[in-house]
Simulated scan of single mutants.
Amino acid sequence: MDKTTIEVLQSENEIMRAFPVMKQLRTHLDEKAFLGLVLEAKAKDRYNLVALIDDGEIVAVVGFKPMITLYYGRFVWVCDLVTDAKRRLKGYGEKLLQYVHGWAKEYNYESVALSSGLQRTDAHRFYEDKMNYDKVSYVFKTSLK
């Protein structure tokens, strides 16, 4: 019997339960910055934070938001996707992306997109080989500080 569940994290306490797993991806964030950014993104950007829970423990987290651009049209952007390092290769990331795909279809979005750090070659194989994502562009960034 599958003991995993997927939960949308709403309250501050629920959001903070995801921090130990999210910290593995977003190493630059402390708890205060994480909570502040999630709450602001939820309020201003329709950001959704969703956890996959196995036997009562958060083992993977996805953060995503709906967007509209001239390039992609109506789409969902996956901002964050991470599985606990000790729990990888169990299909948790796939389950969370399937959840995002279902959410996007339910709300009439046309596609799902994400970016992934150049060094994350295992993640790239997962997106391309397992999830059938196409590599369509590079993402460029500049700091304004």
Rank of each mutant, 00 (worst) to 15 (best):
F64L: 13
F64V: 04
K65R: 13
K65Q: 14
M67P: 04
M67A: 05
I68G: 06
I68V: 12
L70A: 03
Y72E: 00
Y72D: 00
Y72H: 13
G73A: 01
R74F: 06
R74M: 14
F75E: 00
F75W: 08
W77I: 05
W77D: 03
V78Q: 05
V78H: 03
C79S: 11
D80M: 06
D80T: 12
L81R: 11
V82L: 02
V82Y: 09
T83E: 02
D84N: 13
R87V: 13
R88L: 11
R88H: 01
L89M: 13
K90M: 06
K90A: 11
G91H: 12
Y92P: 01
G93P: 01
G93I: 14
E94H: 14
E94R: 12
K95M: 04
K95G: 00
L97R: 04
L97M: 14
L97H: 03
L97K: 14
Q98G: 00
V100T: 02
V100I: 06
H101T: 07
G102A: 12
G102M: 04
G102K: 06
A104C: 09
A104T: 05
K105V: 15
E106C: 04
E106M: 09
Y107F: 15
N108Y: 08
Y109G: 06
E110T: 13
E110Q: 14
S111D: 02
V112F: 10
V112P: 12
A113V: 09
A113M: 08
A113Q: 09
